[in-house]
Computed example of a mutant assay.
Amino acid sequence: MTKPVSHRGALANPPNRYDRLAGEACDDGWDLGEDETATPRIEVAVDSTRTIITRNKSPDVPFGRSINPYRGCEHGCIYCYARPTHAYLGLSPGLDFETRLLAKPDAARLLERELSHPRYRPAVIAIGTNTDPYQPVERSRRIMRQCLEVLAAFNHPVMITTKGALVTRDLDILGPMAARGLAAVNVSVTTLDRDLCRLLEPRAALPRVRLDAIRQLAGAGIPVTVMAAPMIPALTDHELEAILAAAREAGASAAVTLLLRLPGEVADLFRQWLETHVPGRAAHVLGLLGQARGGQVNDSRWRSRFTGEGPLAALLSRRFHLACQRLGLRAARGVELDCRQFRPPPRAGDQLALF
Protein backbone atom coordinates (compact mmCIF):
# COMPACT_ATOMS: atom_id res chain seq x y z
CA MET A 1 0.00 0.00 0.00
CA THR A 2 1.32 3.43 -1.00
CA LYS A 3 1.46 6.13 1.67
CA PRO A 4 -0.94 9.01 0.90
CA VAL A 5 0.49 12.49 0.33
CA SER A 6 -1.10 15.11 2.57
CA HIS A 7 -3.71 17.24 0.79
CA ARG A 8 -2.96 15.72 -2.61
CA GLY A 9 -4.98 13.39 -4.82
CA ALA A 10 -2.18 11.49 -6.56
CA LEU A 11 0.01 9.25 -4.44
CA ALA A 12 3.04 9.38 -6.70
CA ASN A 13 4.76 11.28 -9.48
CA PRO A 14 5.23 8.67 -12.20
CA PRO A 15 7.17 9.59 -15.34
CA ASN A 16 5.09 10.77 -18.25
CA ARG A 17 4.78 8.66 -21.36
CA TYR A 18 7.31 10.76 -23.26
CA ASP A 19 10.13 10.41 -20.73
CA ARG A 20 13.09 8.37 -21.97
CA LEU A 21 14.57 8.03 -18.48
CA ALA A 22 12.86 7.34 -15.16
CA GLY A 23 14.00 7.40 -11.55
CA GLU A 24 12.85 5.22 -8.69
CA ALA A 25 13.08 5.97 -4.96
CA CYS A 26 14.85 3.42 -2.77
CA ASP A 27 16.04 3.06 0.83
CA ASP A 28 19.83 3.45 0.97
CA GLY A 29 20.02 2.92 4.72
CA TRP A 30 20.50 6.55 5.69
CA ASP A 31 17.83 7.59 8.18
CA LEU A 32 17.31 11.23 7.18
CA GLY A 33 13.76 11.57 8.45
CA GLU A 34 10.70 12.40 6.42
CA ASP A 35 11.38 13.41 2.85
CA GLU A 36 10.82 17.10 2.28
CA THR A 37 9.07 16.26 -0.97
CA ALA A 38 6.40 14.21 0.82
CA THR A 39 4.09 17.22 0.62
CA PRO A 40 5.21 19.13 -2.48
CA ARG A 41 4.53 22.84 -2.58
CA ILE A 42 2.57 24.66 -5.25
CA GLU A 43 4.74 26.21 -7.97
CA VAL A 44 3.25 28.58 -10.54
CA ALA A 45 5.09 29.36 -13.77
CA VAL A 46 4.06 31.61 -16.66
CA ASP A 47 2.58 30.11 -19.81
CA SER A 48 3.55 32.54 -22.57
CA THR A 49 0.93 31.30 -25.03
CA ARG A 50 0.28 33.47 -28.06
CA THR A 51 -3.40 32.58 -28.48
CA ILE A 52 -6.10 31.89 -25.90
CA ILE A 53 -9.18 30.52 -27.67
CA THR A 54 -8.96 26.78 -28.38
CA ARG A 55 -11.22 25.22 -31.01
CA ASN A 56 -12.44 21.62 -31.16
CA LYS A 57 -14.77 19.52 -33.27
CA SER A 58 -15.58 16.76 -30.78
CA PRO A 59 -19.12 15.36 -31.21
CA ASP A 60 -19.18 14.60 -27.46
CA VAL A 61 -19.18 18.18 -26.15
CA PRO A 62 -21.72 20.99 -26.69
CA PHE A 63 -19.18 23.68 -27.50
CA GLY A 64 -16.58 24.37 -30.16
CA ARG A 65 -14.45 26.96 -28.38
CA SER A 66 -12.85 27.04 -24.97
CA ILE A 67 -10.43 28.97 -22.78
CA ASN A 68 -8.21 27.56 -20.04
CA PRO A 69 -6.61 30.27 -17.88
CA TYR A 70 -4.40 27.65 -16.17
CA ARG A 71 -2.64 24.39 -16.97
CA GLY A 72 -2.61 21.89 -14.13
CA CYS A 73 -5.07 22.09 -11.26
CA GLU A 74 -4.64 22.46 -7.51
CA HIS A 75 -7.91 20.67 -6.80
CA GLY A 76 -6.03 17.39 -7.28
CA CYS A 77 -9.04 15.29 -8.34
CA ILE A 78 -7.55 11.84 -8.71
CA TYR A 79 -9.85 10.91 -11.60
CA CYS A 80 -9.22 14.08 -13.66
CA TYR A 81 -9.11 13.28 -17.38
CA ALA A 82 -6.89 16.34 -17.97
CA ARG A 83 -3.94 14.88 -16.07
CA PRO A 84 -2.29 13.35 -19.19
CA THR A 85 -2.00 16.83 -20.75
CA HIS A 86 0.80 17.62 -18.30
CA ALA A 87 2.92 15.08 -20.15
CA TYR A 88 3.04 17.49 -23.11
CA LEU A 89 4.95 19.86 -20.81
CA GLY A 90 7.50 17.23 -19.82
CA LEU A 91 5.84 16.92 -16.40
CA SER A 92 4.15 14.08 -14.55
CA PRO A 93 0.37 13.61 -14.66
CA GLY A 94 0.69 12.67 -10.97
CA LEU A 95 1.72 15.13 -8.29
CA ASP A 96 3.19 17.54 -10.85
CA PHE A 97 -0.30 18.10 -12.28
CA GLU A 98 -1.50 19.30 -8.87
CA THR A 99 1.55 21.28 -7.80
CA ARG A 100 3.40 22.56 -10.87
CA LEU A 101 0.91 24.92 -12.47
CA LEU A 102 1.14 27.24 -15.44
CA ALA A 103 -0.82 30.50 -15.40
CA LYS A 104 -1.66 32.61 -18.44
CA PRO A 105 -1.42 36.21 -17.20
CA ASP A 106 -1.89 37.60 -20.73
CA ALA A 107 -5.15 35.68 -21.24
CA ALA A 108 -7.44 38.73 -21.08
CA ARG A 109 -5.25 40.77 -23.44
CA LEU A 110 -5.07 37.89 -25.92
CA LEU A 111 -8.82 37.35 -25.66
CA GLU A 112 -9.55 41.01 -26.38
CA ARG A 113 -7.26 40.89 -29.40
CA GLU A 114 -8.88 37.74 -30.81
CA LEU A 115 -12.43 39.00 -30.25
CA SER A 116 -11.53 42.30 -31.93
CA HIS A 117 -10.34 40.66 -35.14
CA PRO A 118 -12.54 41.76 -38.07
CA ARG A 119 -13.13 38.15 -39.15
CA TYR A 120 -14.11 36.88 -35.69
CA ARG A 121 -17.59 35.35 -35.52
CA PRO A 122 -19.08 34.72 -32.06
CA ALA A 123 -19.91 31.30 -30.64
CA VAL A 124 -20.28 30.22 -27.00
CA ILE A 125 -16.93 30.01 -25.25
CA ALA A 126 -16.62 27.32 -22.57
CA ILE A 127 -14.25 27.90 -19.65
CA GLY A 128 -13.25 25.13 -17.25
CA THR A 129 -13.42 22.24 -19.67
CA ASN A 130 -9.86 21.08 -19.00
CA THR A 131 -8.72 22.55 -15.68
CA ASP A 132 -10.79 24.54 -13.19
CA PRO A 133 -10.69 28.33 -13.71
CA TYR A 134 -11.67 28.81 -10.05
CA GLN A 135 -8.96 26.69 -8.47
CA PRO A 136 -7.29 28.31 -5.40
CA VAL A 137 -4.56 30.12 -7.37
CA GLU A 138 -7.26 32.22 -9.07
CA ARG A 139 -7.93 33.99 -5.79
CA SER A 140 -4.68 35.93 -6.15
CA ARG A 141 -4.05 35.77 -9.92
CA ARG A 142 -7.59 36.87 -10.99
CA ILE A 143 -7.02 35.75 -14.58
CA MET A 144 -10.51 34.28 -14.88
CA ARG A 145 -12.10 37.49 -13.66
CA GLN A 146 -10.11 39.53 -16.18
CA CYS A 147 -11.34 37.25 -18.97
CA LEU A 148 -14.93 37.66 -17.79
CA GLU A 149 -14.54 41.43 -17.86
CA VAL A 150 -13.47 41.22 -21.51
CA LEU A 151 -16.33 38.88 -22.43
CA ALA A 152 -18.84 41.17 -20.70
CA ALA A 153 -17.48 44.21 -22.56
CA PHE A 154 -17.95 42.39 -25.88
CA ASN A 155 -21.38 40.95 -24.95
CA HIS A 156 -19.92 37.53 -25.66
CA PRO A 157 -21.67 34.37 -24.33
CA VAL A 158 -19.77 32.15 -21.88
CA MET A 159 -20.42 28.78 -20.24
CA ILE A 160 -18.37 28.01 -17.11
CA THR A 161 -17.69 24.62 -15.52
CA THR A 162 -16.28 24.52 -12.00
CA LYS A 163 -16.24 22.84 -8.62
CA GLY A 164 -14.73 25.94 -7.03
CA ALA A 165 -16.92 28.13 -4.83
CA LEU A 166 -14.81 31.14 -5.86
CA VAL A 167 -17.18 31.51 -8.82
CA THR A 168 -19.51 33.45 -6.50
CA ARG A 169 -16.89 36.21 -6.29
CA ASP A 170 -17.81 37.14 -9.86
CA LEU A 171 -21.58 37.40 -9.40
CA ASP A 172 -21.32 41.12 -10.17
CA ILE A 173 -20.22 40.23 -13.71
CA LEU A 174 -22.08 36.96 -14.27
CA GLY A 175 -25.45 38.20 -12.97
CA PRO A 176 -25.86 41.04 -15.51
CA MET A 177 -24.50 38.82 -18.29
CA ALA A 178 -27.01 36.07 -17.43
CA ALA A 179 -29.84 38.63 -17.46
CA ARG A 180 -28.96 39.23 -21.12
CA GLY A 181 -28.72 35.53 -21.93
CA LEU A 182 -24.92 35.59 -22.04
CA ALA A 183 -23.81 33.37 -19.13
CA ALA A 184 -24.48 29.97 -17.56
CA VAL A 185 -22.57 27.89 -15.01
CA ASN A 186 -22.09 24.14 -14.58
CA VAL A 187 -21.23 23.08 -11.02
CA SER A 188 -19.68 19.63 -10.60
CA VAL A 189 -20.82 17.63 -7.55
CA THR A 190 -19.17 14.21 -7.42
CA THR A 191 -20.27 13.13 -3.95
CA LEU A 192 -22.13 14.47 -0.91
CA ASP A 193 -19.83 12.56 1.42
CA ARG A 194 -17.40 15.07 2.99
CA ASP A 195 -14.78 12.45 3.89
CA LEU A 196 -14.83 10.80 0.47
CA CYS A 197 -14.66 14.20 -1.21
CA ARG A 198 -11.52 15.05 0.74
CA LEU A 199 -9.85 11.92 -0.64
CA LEU A 200 -11.13 12.18 -4.21
CA GLU A 201 -10.83 15.95 -4.62
CA PRO A 202 -8.53 17.08 -1.78
CA ARG A 203 -8.38 20.82 -2.50
CA ALA A 204 -11.77 21.37 -4.13
CA ALA A 205 -14.70 22.98 -2.31
CA LEU A 206 -16.63 20.70 0.03
CA PRO A 207 -20.02 19.41 -1.19
CA ARG A 208 -22.06 21.73 1.07
CA VAL A 209 -20.02 24.70 -0.16
CA ARG A 210 -20.68 23.79 -3.80
CA LEU A 211 -24.40 23.50 -3.07
CA ASP A 212 -24.28 26.94 -1.47
CA ALA A 213 -22.54 28.25 -4.58
CA ILE A 214 -25.40 26.83 -6.69
CA ARG A 215 -27.82 28.62 -4.36
CA GLN A 216 -26.04 31.95 -4.75
CA LEU A 217 -25.68 31.61 -8.52
CA ALA A 218 -29.34 30.71 -8.98
CA GLY A 219 -30.33 33.53 -6.64
CA ALA A 220 -28.48 35.95 -8.91
CA GLY A 221 -30.51 34.72 -11.89
CA ILE A 222 -27.72 32.65 -13.42
CA PRO A 223 -28.79 29.33 -15.02
CA VAL A 224 -27.04 26.48 -13.18
CA THR A 225 -26.53 22.92 -14.37
CA VAL A 226 -25.42 20.36 -11.80
CA MET A 227 -22.91 17.88 -13.15
CA ALA A 228 -23.26 14.67 -11.13
CA ALA A 229 -19.95 13.54 -12.48
CA PRO A 230 -18.02 11.47 -12.74
CA MET A 231 -20.15 8.62 -11.46
CA ILE A 232 -17.80 5.96 -10.09
CA PRO A 233 -19.30 2.44 -9.95
CA ALA A 234 -19.52 0.97 -6.43
CA LEU A 235 -18.11 4.18 -4.95
CA THR A 236 -20.32 7.18 -5.77
CA ASP A 237 -23.01 5.93 -8.17
CA HIS A 238 -25.41 5.17 -5.30
CA GLU A 239 -25.51 8.92 -4.59
CA LEU A 240 -26.82 9.95 -8.01
CA GLU A 241 -30.41 10.67 -6.97
CA ALA A 242 -29.33 12.38 -3.73
CA ILE A 243 -26.93 14.69 -5.58
CA LEU A 244 -29.61 15.68 -8.09
CA ALA A 245 -32.17 16.31 -5.34
CA ALA A 246 -29.76 18.42 -3.28
CA ALA A 247 -28.76 20.48 -6.33
CA ARG A 248 -32.39 20.97 -7.35
CA GLU A 249 -33.25 22.17 -3.86
CA ALA A 250 -30.34 24.63 -4.09
CA GLY A 251 -31.65 26.06 -7.36
CA ALA A 252 -30.13 24.07 -10.23
CA SER A 253 -32.40 23.94 -13.27
CA ALA A 254 -30.61 21.31 -15.37
CA ALA A 255 -28.44 18.25 -14.83
CA VAL A 256 -25.85 16.05 -16.50
CA THR A 257 -24.20 12.81 -15.45
CA LEU A 258 -21.08 11.20 -16.89
CA LEU A 259 -19.50 7.82 -16.25
CA LEU A 260 -15.91 7.81 -15.00
CA ARG A 261 -13.29 7.66 -17.75
CA LEU A 262 -9.62 6.91 -17.16
CA PRO A 263 -7.52 7.98 -20.15
CA GLY A 264 -3.76 7.57 -20.37
CA GLU A 265 -1.85 7.69 -17.11
CA VAL A 266 -5.03 8.37 -15.09
CA ALA A 267 -5.84 4.64 -15.04
CA ASP A 268 -2.75 3.67 -13.05
CA LEU A 269 -3.03 6.69 -10.75
CA PHE A 270 -6.67 5.86 -9.98
CA ARG A 271 -5.92 2.18 -9.46
CA GLN A 272 -3.20 3.11 -6.97
CA TRP A 273 -5.63 5.47 -5.21
CA LEU A 274 -8.26 2.72 -4.92
CA GLU A 275 -5.79 0.19 -3.52
CA THR A 276 -4.66 2.70 -0.89
CA HIS A 277 -7.90 4.35 0.21
CA VAL A 278 -10.58 1.69 -0.46
CA PRO A 279 -8.65 -1.57 -0.95
CA GLY A 280 -11.71 -3.72 -0.30
CA ARG A 281 -13.56 -2.16 -3.22
CA ALA A 282 -10.73 -1.72 -5.73
CA ALA A 283 -11.35 -4.88 -7.73
CA HIS A 284 -15.12 -4.33 -7.67
CA VAL A 285 -14.88 -0.74 -8.91
CA LEU A 286 -12.51 -1.63 -11.74
CA GLY A 287 -14.50 -4.74 -12.63
CA LEU A 288 -17.76 -2.81 -12.99
CA LEU A 289 -16.02 -0.10 -14.95
CA GLY A 290 -14.62 -2.74 -17.30
CA GLN A 291 -18.13 -4.07 -17.90
CA ALA A 292 -19.15 -0.64 -19.16
CA ARG A 293 -15.97 -0.09 -21.17
CA GLY A 294 -15.73 -3.21 -23.30
CA GLY A 295 -13.50 -5.04 -20.84
CA GLN A 296 -11.08 -2.11 -20.45
CA VAL A 297 -10.92 0.67 -17.86
CA ASN A 298 -11.25 3.25 -20.63
CA ASP A 299 -12.96 3.55 -23.99
CA SER A 300 -11.89 6.56 -26.05
CA ARG A 301 -14.40 6.13 -28.87
CA TRP A 302 -16.58 9.11 -29.76
CA ARG A 303 -20.13 9.06 -28.37
CA SER A 304 -19.42 6.29 -25.87
CA ARG A 305 -16.46 7.58 -23.85
CA PHE A 306 -18.64 9.63 -21.48
CA THR A 307 -21.56 7.23 -21.14
CA GLY A 308 -20.23 3.69 -21.48
CA GLU A 309 -22.14 0.67 -22.76
CA GLY A 310 -23.89 -2.40 -21.35
CA PRO A 311 -26.31 -2.97 -18.44
CA LEU A 312 -24.50 -0.76 -15.91
CA ALA A 313 -24.39 2.26 -18.21
CA ALA A 314 -28.00 1.72 -19.26
CA LEU A 315 -29.15 1.49 -15.64
CA LEU A 316 -27.26 4.66 -14.70
CA SER A 317 -28.84 6.51 -17.62
CA ARG A 318 -32.31 5.26 -16.72
CA ARG A 319 -31.93 6.28 -13.07
CA PHE A 320 -30.69 9.69 -14.12
CA HIS A 321 -33.59 10.44 -16.44
CA LEU A 322 -36.21 9.19 -13.99
CA ALA A 323 -34.72 11.34 -11.23
CA CYS A 324 -34.63 14.41 -13.49
CA GLN A 325 -38.25 13.84 -14.47
CA ARG A 326 -39.32 13.50 -10.84
CA LEU A 327 -37.36 16.54 -9.69
CA GLY A 328 -38.20 18.81 -12.62
CA LEU A 329 -34.61 19.06 -13.83
CA ARG A 330 -33.86 19.50 -17.50
CA ALA A 331 -31.62 16.62 -18.55
CA ALA A 332 -29.24 18.62 -20.73
CA ARG A 333 -25.81 20.18 -20.59
CA GLY A 334 -25.76 23.95 -20.64
CA VAL A 335 -28.40 26.37 -21.93
CA GLU A 336 -29.00 28.31 -25.10
CA LEU A 337 -26.97 31.51 -24.98
CA ASP A 338 -27.34 34.53 -27.26
CA CYS A 339 -24.57 35.26 -29.76
CA ARG A 340 -26.49 38.04 -31.53
CA GLN A 341 -25.55 40.70 -28.98
CA PHE A 342 -21.83 40.44 -29.69
CA ARG A 343 -20.31 43.88 -30.30
CA PRO A 344 -16.66 44.95 -29.94
CA PRO A 345 -16.66 47.88 -27.50
CA PRO A 346 -15.62 51.29 -28.87
CA ARG A 347 -11.99 52.22 -28.37
CA ALA A 348 -10.29 55.57 -28.14
CA GLY A 349 -9.69 56.91 -31.63
CA ASP A 350 -12.35 54.78 -33.32
CA GLN A 351 -14.30 56.52 -36.09
CA LEU A 352 -17.93 57.16 -35.19
CA ALA A 353 -20.56 55.16 -37.09
CA LEU A 354 -22.46 57.08 -39.76
CA PHE A 355 -25.83 55.58 -38.75
Rank of each mutant, 00 (worst) to 15 (best):
P4E: 10
V5K: 11
V5L: 06
H7K: 08
L11G: 15
P14D: 10
P14W: 11
P15N: 11
G29W: 14
L32V: 06
L32Q: 10
P40I: 05
P40W: 09
V44A: 03
V44P: 00
I53P: 01
I53E: 03
N56S: 07
K57C: 02
V61Y: 06
V61N: 03
P62Q: 12
S66N: 04
P84L: 07
H86T: 14
L89R: 03
D96V: 02
E98Y: 11
T99V: 01
K104C: 00
K104W: 00
K104I: 01
A107V: 00
A107D: 01
L111G: 08
L111K: 03
H117Y: 09
P118F: 12
R119F: 11
R121K: 15
R121G: 03
A123G: 12
V124Q: 13
I127W: 02
G128D: 04
T129I: 05
P136W: 07
P136E: 09
I143Y: 00
M144L: 06
L148Q: 01
A153I: 03
F154D: 11
F154R: 11
M159I: 07
T162F: 07
A165D: 14
A165P: 02
V167W: 15
L182P: 08
A183K: 12
V185A: 13
V187Y: 08
V187F: 08
L192V: 12
L192T: 10
L192Y: 13
L192R: 06
L196H: 08
L196A: 12
P202L: 09
L211I: 03
D212Y: 04
A213R: 05
I214S: 13
R215I: 00
L217T: 11
A218T: 13
G219Y: 09
G219A: 08
G221M: 14
I222H: 14
T225A: 11
M227P: 00
T236G: 03
T236P: 04
T236K: 07
D237Q: 04
E241D: 13
L244C: 11
A245L: 10
R248V: 04
R248D: 07
A255D: 12
T257S: 13
L260S: 00
A267K: 12
R271P: 02
W273Q: 02
L274K: 07
E275P: 00
A283Y: 11
H284Y: 02
H284Q: 03
V285G: 00
V285D: 02
G287H: 06
L289I: 01
Q296P: 00
N298T: 04
R305N: 12
L316D: 05
S317L: 09
R318I: 00
R319W: 04
C324L: 12
R330W: 10
G334Y: 15
C339K: 15
A353I: 12
